[in-house]
Design a protein around this nucleic acid. Structure first.
Length: 532
DNA sequence: AGTAACGTCTGT
DNA sequence: ACAGACGTTACT
């Protein structure tokens, strides 16, 4: 009934942009939807796109035309951003009308542009009538700010409402989690240094430094009235920011442009922390768009956040970080699945998370991943690591010898503080052959056997390893030191706190650059650490 | 004509 | 609330 007056025409289906990273990649062949496809042996009933190929910027179909003048988008015929906008086709999320903004005769009323989807807005007509759509682009920036920077603010309520409306579940907090956190919590209260600081005054970079906003920008529309209908986590709700978030400068009230252009602001923004960036995003819509620039978010650190919320998840996907730290959070399996299916980052930290959640990685293929931090994952055992590293079952049988592990391109793996035995070293040798850095520190059950396997002439890690940490592996003997010398590229070995080693070996050892001499293989065992 | 897959409906 | 099904649209 609420919609009846709105629809001025049938809604047009959007279609792939064919240009985004997702559109240009090939089907993974392994996700739920791929497995359904006939070409991958499925029944073909679901008719959905590969999860990794879901377009991040779906466009209006080529056949779309203006409901007023009947013509297509004409933004190509002009140069200035302003003209382009007035001649492009905009689709209203409320009434579904597609129209050239220039074909609207509306006087002052303004539309609200959705930055996340091309050619998408709430048209002036609907906005004037006070209609509201399900969710608004600004809501995301606002909420990400709340969750990252200010858990206790008055926005809390809005956030809670949002959480309730989103469908993604979270892992129940209670149960057994308390016991595990007792031992390794020494660093845990450093966490509000990054976010949630309440004017602690420790850093000179509080929001006051960002003062010049006042006269310069038009504020974005006031806070969103509560959406009446529940928000669905639609497949296309989450968008990365537009490739080039125009405009390149801010208009002043007097009509001219602010002297500081976007490029300069961006350079300023690079000096800001996550929290500060989130504050900036609330200044105005333009800043909100500028601050979403991928280059400002190469690393996202949510470690030790009390909970990972759906808005955070969408915020992460929009920003496509190279490095994502989810360490010591209570992220759920479902959430992690959702993320890894939409991320192409190179570094992932899930240290201190629970194995049931981390096991989501068993259903992913992450060829881009270079660093994986699994340190202190609760209850991670040899068998679990095996599940993680082994290739997915179907490819294992399909290609016979094509036994590429799930994380075959990892160059750094952190397994600190896990209850692993020597059998895991064989997995590493086999399925992560490009490791340069390996952290096995505080794995109490690791013995010389592990070092033997890693450094054996048949192990690709023998050549690739440059850094290894075995600190606190109390079963290691001097044998390991000898074995490590077989690694030609090894630069550093951390053997601190290894109780069975003599004091001069139980240190952070530096290895001199290996001379590629001919008699390398035979001489190794004879030369000890004495010649360092 | 044929393929891909969007958006919504349906049953649980 | 959610997964699965499928009519239908977009495009080649």
């Amino acid at each position: 009934s609420a919609l009846s007056g709105a629809a001025s025409g049938a809604r047009r289906r959007r279609t792939r942009c064919r240009r985004c990273q997702a559109c240009t990649r090939s089907e993974c062949g392994e996700c739920h939807f791929c497995k359904d496809m006939k070409k991958f042996g499925g029944p073909g009933r679901m008719k959905q796109s590969c999860l990794l190929r879901q377009c991040t910027a779906p466009v209006l179909p080529h056949t779309a035309v203006c409901s007023a003048c009947g013509e297509a988008g004409k933004e190509d015929t002009v140069d200035s951003e302003e003209e382009k906008f007035s001649l492009c086709l905009m689709e209203c999320t409320i009434c579904n009308e597609i129209i050239h903004p220039s074909c609207l005769k509306m006087g002052k009323a303004e539309g609200i542009i959705n930055d996340e989807i091309p050619n998408c807005w709430e048209c002036p007509k609907c906005h004037k009538e006070g209609k509201t759509s399900k969710v608004r682009a600004e809501l995301y920036s606002t909420i990400l700010y709340c969750t990252l920077a200010d858990q206790r603010s008055h926005h809390r309520e809005k956030l809670e409402r949002f959480k309730r409306m989103c469908l993604l579940e979270r892992r129940p907090e209670s149960s057994s989690s308390s016991s595990s956190s007792s031992e390794s919590d020494s660093e845990s209260d450093s966490d509000n240094s990054l976010r949630g600081e309440q004017g602690g005054g420790s850093s000179p970079s509080s929001s006051s430094r960002l003062a010049p906003r006042s006269q310069v920008m038009k504020r974005s529309p006031p806070a969103v009235p509560s959406p009446p209908r529940p928000i669905q986590m639609e497949r296309h709700l989450v968008r990365p920011p537009p490739a080039c978030p125009e405009p390149s400068c801010l208009p002043l009230d007097c009509g001219s442009a602010h002297v500081i252009t976007r490029d300069v602001w961006l350079r300023v923004f690079t000096y800001l922390s996550q929290t500060e960036l989130c504050v900036c995003m609330r200044v105005c819509r333009t800043w909100s768009r500028w601050c979403c620039d991928k280059r400002l978010w190469t690393q996202i650190d949510l470690s030790r956040q009390r909970s990972i919320t759906p808005p955070m998840l969408s915020g992460i996907i929009r920003r496509q970080p190279v490095s994502l730290n989810l360490g010591h959070t209570n992220i759920s399996k479902k959430q992690l699945m959702w993320l890894i299916n939409r991320l192409q980052g190179e570094e992932l930290n899930v240290s201190g998370c629970a194995w049931p959640a981390v096991s989501a990685l068993c259903q992913a293929v992450c060829p881009c991943l270079k660093l994986l931090d699994l340190s202190r994952v609760e209850d991670l055992k040899d068998t679990h690591l095996r599940e993680l590293l082994l290739p997915p079952p179907d490819t294992r049988t399909a290609h016979g010898e094509g036994r590429a592990g799930r994380f075959q391109n990892l160059t750094e793996l952190r397994l600190s503080g896990l209850d692993l035995s020597d059998s895991s070293s064989r997995l590493l040798v086999r399925y992560t052959p490009h490791l340069r850095r390996l952290d096995l520190s505080h794995c109490a059950n690791v013995t010389d056997q592990t070092v033997l396997a890693l450094t054996s002439p048949l192990s690709p890690l023998r050549d690739s390893l440059t850094h290894i940490s075995l600190a606190g592996c109390s079963k290691l003997t001097e044998q390991s030191v000898l074995l490590l010398r077989r690694c030609p590229s090894l630069h550093t070995a951390d053997l601190r706190c290894c109780q069975l080693l003599p004091p001069e070996a139980a240190q952070l050892l530096s290895f001199p650059p290996h001379t590629t001499s001919s008699s390398f293989s035979s001489s190794v065992d004879g030369t000890l650490l004495k010649n360092t």
